[in-house]
Amino acid sequence: MQMAEVKQIEGKNVEMNSQPKSSAIKNEEKEIVVKVKRFSPDKGEWWQEYKLKVDRFTQMTEVLRRIKTEQDPSLSYRAACHMAVCGSCGMKINGAPRLACKTLALELTKEYGSDEITLEPMDLYPRVKDLVVDLEDFYQRMYKVKPRLYPSEEVLEGKAEHRLVPEDQRELWKFAQCIWCGLCVSSCPSVRNDPEFLGPAAHAKGYRFLADPRDTITEERMNILVDSSWRCTYCYQCFNVCPRDIEPVTTIKKTRAWSGKMKDKTKVIETGEKHVNAIADTIRKSGKLLEAEVYLRTYGLAQAMSDMLFMLKSGRMKYALIKEVPVKGLNDIEKVMNGGEQ
């Protein structure tokens, strides 16, 4: 059902008789070993090996399809579009969370310097069978952010028309391209440690609507998203694993910037804002991040005192007492901080 075919393309006319430079397509073939971590509720977990020949074009989804149709029909996995738009084939390949379709077998053997490739189910989600995991937790996170546009009644009734400038469209579309594959959530440390954190994909989805000028439930969205956004540690794992490069962490940063508009700030938001302001102030003051001061201002004197006892015990108190000397050219830093000349 794909479509294509742009008929008229304005612009440059290409000389139709110009000769192509190269005329051959090189290929190579190699036998690889695929080790799959298998699982079924009645048999438990085991590793199974398959050998097959791949060439430079062989996607890991094709590797799986060939194993299933030619060697072992009992292997279970999900795959559909094989072009990285449906988000079905998320798994761990050589330990890293990836889409199987967007991974070429031969390239992988070169990257890792080994002809053996391991396949495992994604982390975090309960296993169902072999490489199939239960994504219910992921879906529930997405539903929490009310993942749909709530346009005005006037627009729905056709009495008014949406306008959206190309710049806004581009910005929103970047974040709207989440394919619900679950890779980012499976590899997010904050998701594991903080039940209140929505996770990267839901934040991308949530922000895409929060920032959409056509949406009407902004305050409700802020209440859902802003607190959670301060629960991310900026580890950038979601940035690394996202097969569509939508940068969930960027949407989390952008969501934090909405904190100022919140009427009732939660403790987490307040602490987060204090932390950010303290960092900015110490940099303004000295050109450096003054850890001890940031800590004191973020958590307050009482908390800092009690933590100090812990630091004394662990022998790390000396770090808190380092006296930092301001850097030269603080004026320039001030300019940068104010978004001026850089």
Binding site: M1, Q2, C81, C86, G87
Partner: peptide, 9 residues
């Protein structure tokens, strides 16, 4: 995951 997602142009 439906195939509608693959439509391009």
């Amino acid at each position: 995951r439906s195939h509608s997602s693959s439509a391009e142009g």
